[in-house]
């Protein structure tokens, strides 16, 4: 049982740096993303890294094609998205990544599961895990900041060394609930 985190998170956030360090360690060359507040710091760090090509996508499914193309060319890509974006990717993951056994590393910030303010985020947030499992993705959850680096390393190895589709879910408890005033 972990200690409850206050809503919203008020302590300095360092886990995106651990995530960045791990992505570098496993040799990520490309990032595809649709902007997300939870990923803002990681996106910023990647954009300042000349060794990582960052591609802004109009929709998350493009990232599945991007990652498969990168792998064909000998590079490793990671996709950053929000749980709602996963819904845009289902056919791409199943019909391209799964059918061709392409490595796929998705780092997904969760909405709709922990003190969610916006009811429109709840349905897919609640379904994210089941949907991923239904299309044969591996799911790794991260609840605490100190788990981020290790879990990212495990997820990346599973994806690239064992040719799996892997989703690392950054839970809303970790990220902090978006607050509106």
């Amino acid at each position: 049982m972990t200690a409850p985190v206050p809503l919203p998170v008020s302590t300095p956030v360092t886990w995106p740096d651990a995530l960045y360090d791990t992505l570098k360690e496993v040799g990520i060359d490309q990032i595809g993303h649709v902007p997300d507040a939870g990923h803002a710091r990681l996106i910023d760090r990647c954009e300042h890294d000349p060794g990582i090509a960052v591609t802004g996508l109009t929709s998350e499914e493009e990232g599945v094609g991007l990652a498969a193309g990168a792998w064909l060319g000998g590079q490793r890509a990671a996709l950053l998205m929000q749980s709602s974006g996963l819904g845009n990717c289902i056919n791409a993951i199943a019909s391209l990544a799964e059918a061709g056994q392409f490595p796929l590393l998705m780092i997904i910030t969760m909405r709709g599961e922990w003190g969610e303010f916006n009811p429109w985020q709840v349905p897919l947030g609640r379904a994210t895990r089941d949907v991923l499992l239904a299309i044969d993705c591996r799911v790794l959850n991260v609840h605490r900041p100190d788990e981020v680096g290790d879990t990212a390393l495990a997820a990346a190895r599973l994806a690239f060394d064992s040719s799996q589709r892997v989703a690392m879910l950054l839970t809303q408890r970790l990220i902090g609930t978006k607050a509106f005033r």
């Binding site: 595809g32 591609t55 094609g65 991007l66 193309g69 990168a70 064909l72 590079q75 019909s95």
Partner: peptide
């Protein structure tokens, strides 16, 4: 690489490939 599925992804796949090489 012939796509037999994943309709709508050809250009994205080409982009990932082009960036990688």
């Amino acid at each position: 690489y012939y796509l037999w599925g994943g309709m709508g992804l050809a250009a994205s796949m080409g982009l990932g490939l082009a960036l990688s090489r």
